[in-house]
């Protein structure tokens, strides 16, 4: 981030209380309520976050490194359950059926069946392109070849990579470029039709051209699936999201329409961040 050389007013502004998100008029996919997260070493990474997630829209989470944005995202499909001793508090309610994703009765594996995820670094499996996209279907016990083939093609088209790979579906996924690999990973997450797609800084390892392609893709995706994206890149959030959440030190400082957050932030911390005073 740019350093303007000015002394940040962060020290005094951060003491101001966060602004609670206003009531949403648009249909919701999920609601995060009173959510806190503790790592196994006792560190509280997220403090009492309330946040709506709009149905079939792009919600971006921004904030400086270590603000808890990735931690929040990874909570939504229970990635933290892979490591012992982590603790969730509060609720993440899916509007459709009222299921609490982080409730004690929710099976993390089932949560991940409903909520797909794409990671920072492209992580294709060391298998063919086809098998990568089919992986989520096989996990769901789908064996019908025709169904799988159709779903793979649909997913690759939705991920805007079909034209590039349709002739080498059975070639190794590791032979693709970084940008293609990341779109392949998006296709992999899309293939089983998740209700929410989580993107954890999906372009941080990509060059600008590949980034542009992935950004276009994300905007198209929002017509059919709810997208939550964590990004370090404010311009990216401004370009592609409908709502933006600004997090700082584990708190949700401000949430609102993207244009509002970037043009007239209400909280001084948000303003400091988007004007590049810290990051």
């Amino acid at each position: 981030m740019m350093d303007t050389g000015m002394t940040p007013k962060a020290s005094d502004t951060s003491t101001l209380p966060p602004i609670k998100p206003a009531a949403e008029s648009e249909p919701l996919c999920a609601r995060i309520e009173g959510f806190s997260f503790f790592y196994s070493n006792g560190m509280q990474a997220i403090k009492n976050v309330d946040m709506p997630i709009l149905d079939r829209k792009v919600t971006a989470i921004i904030g400086p490194s270590g603000c808890g944005k990735s931690t929040l995202l990874r909570s939504l499909n229970r990635m933290h359950d892979l490591y012992p001793g982590n603790r969730y508090e509060g609720r993440v309610i899916l509007e459709q059926d009222g299921e609490n994703l982080i409730g004690p009765e929710a099976d993390p594996v089932v949560v991940r069946l409903r909520v797909g995820m794409v990671f920072q670094k492209p992580n294709p499996f060391p298998k063919s392109i086809f098998e990568n996209v089919a992986a989520g279907l096989r996990v769901r016990g789908i064996k019908n070849r025709a169904v799988i083939e159709e779903a793979v093609e649909t997913a690759l088209k939705r991920a805007a990579i079909w034209d590039e790979v349709k002739d080498k579906l059975h070639g190794s996924a590791n032979d693709l470029s970084g940008g293609q690999q990341q779109r392949l990973c998006i296709a992999r997450a899309l293939a089983p039709n998740p209700e929410i797609l989580l993107l954890d800084e999906p372009t941080s390892a990509l060059d600008p051209i590949a980034t542009a392609k992935v950004e276009d893709l994300i905007q198209d995706l929002a017509e059919t699936v709810t997208v939550v994206i964590v990004t370090h890149n404010m311009q990216q959030a401004a370009r592609i999201s409908h709502r933006t959440a600004f997090m700082y030190l584990g708190q949700l400082i401000e949430f609102g329409e993207t244009s509002q957050i970037f043009t007239s932030p209400k909280h001084p911390s948000t303003e400091s961040y988007i004007t590049g005073r810290y990051g």
């Binding site: 499909n77 990635m79 892979l82 594996v109 089932v110 991940r112 069946l113 409903r114 797909g116 995820m117 990671f119 670094k121 992580n123 294709p124 499996f125 060391p126 992986a135 989520g136 096989r138 996990v139 769901r140 990973c185 992999r188 997450a189 089983p192």
Partner: peptide, 27 residues
């Protein structure tokens, strides 16, 4: 085996045994 491969498999909704059988053991 890289952690991101494992997380990728779990992220798809695979349970522990599916991750072992389909991803960890082949790799």
């Amino acid at each position: 085996i890289p952690k991101i491969i494992k997380e990728g498999a779990y992220g798809l909704g695979a349970d522990q045994w599916q991750v072992m059988w389909n991803y960890i053991l082949p790799a």
